[in-house]
Simulated scan of single mutants.
Amino acid sequence: MTERLPLFPLNTVLYPGLVLPLHVFEERYRRLVGDLLAQPEDRPRRFGVLAIKDGREVAPVREHPGPAGPLDGLGTVTGDPLEALHHVGCIADVTDVQELPDGQYRLVVTGTTRFRLRSVETGGPYLVGTTELVEELPGEAAGALAAGVERAFRAYQKRLAGAREASLAGEQELPTDPQVLSYLVAAAAILPTPVKQELLACPDTAQRLTSELALLRRETALLAWLPSLPAHELTRQAFSPN
């Protein structure tokens, strides 16, 4: 089953079950939010979040594109937007919206379901995609893998707190459901966006947990050898203003 969704490209990855605050100030995304708010109340207010491959925002195709490549200096798509975007994303349900006096918005959205992007419409003020839902399968031995990932994640948190010269305020309770745990760890771990995207696109929970176990062990070992990393190395994440 396919569905048309307005698209909100970002320099980050949204996962099912995770909450994401957004400050919407660009005109094309203000139009997107305005269109969602104009819908009947019984219709879901949601859009698709996709990570951008090269870390820049994307916009609809210009009426008369210049000679630039897929993305010009303004981050505007001048070629096929499918080349600029990762193809597995997450549906975002708008759970709270605040309209500011200057026409900007503050949103809180919750990731719900993964989708695969099949095509993109570029004729309107913002991108609209034809999408199909991606089913989440448990895979083999997800429960046993989840136990290992939980232990590895706690060790990683302790090492990370030490590298940041911070302290953990008590041990956090982690979800017992393997799928929920896999997405929480993917969101919380400090990893480059392409790696986070790979975790989102894993075909099942067991494979995601397997990848996370290897990543957490590697990152924990790295932090043990480099206890005083510079701040930009600790984050290694591009800022996405919109």
Rank of each mutant, 00 (worst) to 15 (best):
Pro9Thr: 00
Leu10Ala: 09
Asn11Ile: 01
Thr12Lys: 05
Pro16Ser: 09
Leu18Glu: 14
Leu20Cys: 02
Val24Pro: 01
Val24Ile: 12
Glu26Arg: 13
Arg31Asp: 08
Arg31Ile: 03
Asp35Met: 12
Ala38Gln: 12
Ala38Phe: 07
Asp42His: 15
Arg45Ala: 08
Gly48His: 02
Val49Met: 06
Ala51Ser: 05
Ile52Cys: 14
Lys53Pro: 00
Gly55Cys: 02
Arg56Cys: 04
Arg62Gly: 11
His64Cys: 07
Pro70Ala: 14
Leu71Arg: 08
Asp72Cys: 15
Gly75Glu: 06
Asp80Arg: 09
His86Lys: 04
His87Ser: 08
Gly89His: 02
Ala92Met: 02
Asp93Cys: 10
Thr95Val: 14
Leu100Arg: 07
Pro101Trp: 00
Arg106Pro: 02
Leu107Asn: 06
Val109Tyr: 05
Val109Gln: 05
Phe115Leu: 10
Arg116Val: 01
Glu121Ile: 10
Gly124Phe: 11
Pro125Leu: 11
Leu127Trp: 07
Val134Ala: 03
Val134Leu: 06
Glu136Asn: 04
Leu137Thr: 00
Ala142Ser: 15
Ala142Lys: 04
Ala142Trp: 01
Ala142Cys: 09
Gly143Gln: 01
Leu145Ser: 06
Leu145His: 05
Ala146Trp: 01
Val149Cys: 14
Ala152Pro: 08
Ala155Phe: 08
Lys158Pro: 03
Ala161Leu: 07
Arg164Val: 01
Gly170Leu: 06
Gly170Ile: 02
Leu184Tyr: 03
Ala187Gln: 15
Glu198Met: 14
Leu199Pro: 13
Leu200Asp: 07
Cys202Trp: 11
Pro203Trp: 03
Gln207Asn: 11
Arg208Ser: 14
Leu209Asp: 04
Ser211Met: 15
Ala214Asp: 12
Arg218Lys: 14
Glu219Gly: 10
Ala221Tyr: 05
Ala221Arg: 14
Leu222Thr: 09
Ala224Thr: 13
Ser228Leu: 07
Thr235Pro: 01
Ala238Glu: 04
Phe239Tyr: 14
Phe239Pro: 03
